[in-house]
Amino acid sequence: MKMAQEKMLLEINQIEVYYEQIAALKGVSLNLERGEILAIIGANGAGKTTLINTISGVLHPRSGSVEFNGDPIHTLPAWKIARKGIMQIPEGRKVFAKQSVLENLELGAYSIKDKSAIKASIEQMYTLFPVLSERRNQLAGTLSGGEQQMLAIARGLMGHPELLLFDEPSMGLSPVMVERVFQTIQEINKQGITILLVEQNAKKSLQIANRAYVLETGRIVLADAAARLLENEQVKQAYLGG
C-alpha cells in the first residue's frame, strides 16, 4: 500500500524520443500536479503529439522516464496505460467512424468491468452532451466536426481517467465550438480530473490553464504560471500574435 498520495500525478524526466534517426523530443522534463490543468503550447512540428503519445505509450522514449503515481510507465504498451487511468483525446478526434455513437462510448469504457458503472457513465455523457443522446444510434462518421470532438471527449471520459490528455482539441473547429470545448475542459477539471492540454491556440489554453510549458523543436524553452506566460513578451511575440 502506498503512503500518502504523492503530490505529483505525472513526472517526466529527461525523455528523448526518436522517429528512426530523427529526434523529436530532446530531453523533455515536466511535472503534472494532481488536479491541475497544465498547458503545453508549441507551433506545428514542435513535438506536442510526440509528447502526448509517449505518455500514452504509443511511442517509447529512447532514454528518460515517465512516472505515473510514482510507477514507471514508459515501457508499458498503450493499452495498459489506458487501463491505468490515462486517457487520450487524440489529435483530429479519431472517432470510430464506422461504429455508432453509443458503440464509441462503450469502447471508451473498454477497461471498465462494472456494467452498471458503464451504463451510469453513458447517461452522464448524454447529460453532458445532449447531442450525443440524440445521435446515439448514428454512425460516428456522420457527425459534424464539433460533434465528433464532443464524442471523442466523452469517449475519453468513459474510461474513468485520472489524467486526461488533450491533443489540439480546438483544431479545425468553429470559434463557437472552440469556446465550447475549452469550457468543457474546465468543467471536466472541476470534477477532479487532471488535464494535460497540448495546443497551438496559446491564448485560450493559457486562459484556462494553471501552469504552462512552451515547447520548441523538441525542447521545453519556458515554464511558468499560465497567467504570467500570458504577459511574457517572448510568448506574446511568438504565440499571441505580438
Binding site: 504509443v58 489506458a82 479519431k94 461504429q99
Partner: peptide
Amino acid sequence: TRLGKAMRATAQNHTVSQLMGINV
C-alpha cells in the same frame, strides 16, 4: 459483444483502439 465491437474498432485504427485499453 464487447470483444466483437473491439474487433471492429481495431479494424479501423490500431493506435486509437489501444488508447481505449484494447489489447490489439
